[in-house]
Write a protein that binds this DNA or RNA. Sequence first.
RNA 1: GGGCUAGUAGCUCAGCUGGUUAGAGCGCGCGCUUGAUAAGCGUGAGGUCGCAAGUUCAAAUCUUGCCUGGCCCA
Length: 955
Amino acid sequence: MTRDLKDTVFLPRTDFPMRGGLPKKEPELLAHWAAIDLYGKLRQDGAERAPFVLHDGPPYANGNIHIGHAVNKILKDVVIRSQQMQGRNAVYVPGWDCHGLPIEWKIEEKYRKAGKDKDEVPVLQFRAECRNFAAEWVGIQATEFRRLGVEGDWQNPYLTMAFDAESAIVREIHKFLLNGGLYKGAKPVMWSVVEKTALAEAEVEYQDVTSPMIWVRFPVVTAPTPVLNGAAVVIWTTTPWTMPGNRAVAYGEDIPYAVYTVTEAQEGSLAKVGEKLILAQALAEGVATSAKATFAKGADVAAADLNGAILAHPFRGHPEANGGYDYPVPLLPGDHVTSDAGTGFVHTAPGHGAEDFDLGRKFGLEVPRTVDADGSYYAHVPLFAGARVYTPEGKPGDANGKSISALIAQGALLAKGNLKHSYPHSWRSKAPLIFRTTPQWFISMDTNDLRARALAAIDETQWVPPQGRNRIHAMVESRPDWCISRQRAWGVPIALFLSKADGQPLKDEGVLNRIASFFETEGADAWYNRPAADFLGPDYDPADFDQVFDIVDVWFESGSTHAFVLERRNDLSSPADLYLEGSDQHRGWFHSSLLESCGTRGRAPFKAVLTHGFALDEQGRKMSKSLGNVVAPQQVMEEYGADILRLWVVGSDYSEDLKVGKEILKSNADLYRRLRNTLRYLLGALADFTEAERVEPAAMPDLERWVLHRLAEMDAIVRQSTKEYDLHRLITELHNFCAVDLSAFYFDVRKDSLYCDAPTSARRRAVRTVLERLFVTLTAWLAPILCFTAEEAWLAFLVEGDDARRAAWPESVHLRQFPDIPADWRNDALAARWTVVRDVRRAVTGALELKRADKTIGSSLQAHPTVYVQEAHQAALAGLDLAEISITSGITVMVGAAPEGAFALADVAGVGVVFGPAEGEKCERCWRILPEVPAAAEGVEQLCHRCDDAVGHHV
RNA sequence: GGGCUAGUAGCUCAGCUGGUUAGAGCGCGCGCUUGAUAAGCGUGAGGUCGCAAGUUCAAAUCUUGCCUGGCCCA
């Protein structure tokens, strides 16, 4: 051969590498976007378009991001980008939750390590350190989020600790004060006697301790049914000291009870022979054992028989109590009562337990204040004044003993013993805790019909998936009033003044405005920094008021973001189109935002809420350090890159929990390769493509028009799934399209034309026209998901194109829109024909596979099969070259029954294939075996007619 | 214990209001190609549809219970 024919073949040519090298490439793209101010250009681009507002739920600024953050931010980013590319101006303002307990802890820890106590530190200094701590993590997390490819207004995020935010938050609190929703109440909280402070659930740890346990008689005073006459209800408790706080006894509505008579009492028993006790049937025997007695079961007592009964407090009539315990003790139904342990009756002290408190609220019981901050009884408590629950060192005090001896004196004690059980302790001092009543601020669920409004707003919101509606509806329906006060330092104070005269909060708008104004310019520190007179102004005397220093629940703060972010920023508006968070936020941010907004604006701050599940390991278990199954996003970045992580998120069914681990990441990397190589192949095939080469669809072969039809179908799917936030469907369809329709079929078939046809050939021009459309369309569709790879491919497209291309297209794929697909590309009749054609093709490739297996052929170009088809098939094949489509050198199509032994596929009826070898010589250029190719001879180029012609063009 | 929710091939997922041999992609095995080559093509093997009852002529699909997970509460 005189020249190398390979040089005349138009092989794919591109610098877009097969391997992404994402861990290295992605940071380069981030730098590039920063350099061209992509965010600014996006805003400029979308300025005239309809806004799309996705309001960011603020993560907590106190540590590196974990996989859950990554899931959330990636989903948001994909939604934002796809909305932007579908005609909206999708502004994304990231935010952070900056106040709160976990940050306080970190700062306290620092002090403790330095041997200092938190209380020695001036509050303003403490708050300043918290602020610095939060600011530092905001910076770190922002970097980590951006590394995921999340685009947004990172220069101007929102922070709950920003002065304007603190001011807006206090204004929201004031709104509740003015509309009557805010009230001061009392609530039992976990309290450390040692530290003299309330503790949050997260600060509590459980340790085993041995406590006294007692069984106590509550004599029936008023019996709704005669069976109860003369009997006593028995309760069991491990906190005898709470008896002074008793205001009720709870029973279970589904628990069978009975009257028992004591028939026998052993030595030392406190039971009295002949006395009648009411107990749960399932527990009576155990009580008898504990009481060292024998019981005889009497009449059954149903829950209905207990309803309305009134009991006597065991201390009733105590000679030294001055009648302090002579109040009625009602029997009340409680859902929390079980027959697992105890007696089936629960001693209820509303000031000493959460369930007791809730039951008390439900039935209007008094919440007595019995114990002071140091663990001693207030002077007003009969019999117990000055007694200690725990000493200041955290050791048991004398209150339990006093209670037990009073019970014995009253003849109320039925039995006693000791129990080793799990009991709450302070995380720091390790001292045991108590439940203690403290004054707190609440937002009423009933004032201004808040509950009803919130429920109505839930129904006006679109929940994705729809089950979310039920979840939050059930919570709002049954939740108690919202306790918004915390006895803490790092947060926004509930900035109010209480009148010393009547304890009522001052509702003077002038004062409230002054407070908010100072906060606006100086931050909430002003509350600690300035004298009260500055806020009260000339009309009030500071001596007449107490200043409230409780801070507000951080959920109230984040629940107010709609007020200081959506409403205040010019680039956003309220209500938001979408809130998008993990499903735990039904209890959290969705919930607090809903209540806050319904309480102040009467409606939800969102039109739609999308929730996603949690990241679990490959076995579907929660990630934990101890299980060693934690997947860190930073690690995935290093090993695979952000696009793999993004692909994983979008490829999972995120309406449920998402599983992740080594194998799953690996398979996502495989999926990614296919998408990347599709783009790479397109780029290679489009080398030197210019506008002059383009042809109209009408002039294209059927196969090209079929591809355009598929693009039209895909376009409908892409738009629909974007609209429904069904990103999972989107990526699945895109991947299948790339793998099945393009790579395995269209690209494979068209390689011959692309590589070997003359550049001027109508067929090749049509192919390249379609490939260009495919590239342009696929990069747009993939851009929201594979934001780095789509950009990398797009930049290659611009660099490898001509000046006209660079002038015609935006400099970034993210500044594009999803391409408009002409409606007439859709051709269902054509598609139906191609379904038949591909069935016949499958029969052919199936037949060839057998010959390949027995080594008759290697390449399919060595074959020239005969295909027997029905008339319907023939009609579908009309005008098509089945050899070209099947990638054989020739093919013979016969209408009629296939001979005996012909190859057939079970699911392709009426098609039979008989193998035949391709006859002739192999074209040295296109490798087809055709009779027209001249025989090998010295000085002869073995070329088919087409290649001979094409080589002529190739100078 | 309560509310919400899930359990389909090794993996990610389809399977609508019950109806022929349960599908797809990936992975895996085998083969081909060596002009997408750390790529591409073909083909094959993989499923007690979590378990058990029940309703029905018929259930992955409906009902109940149980098991194993998840989130939020208690």
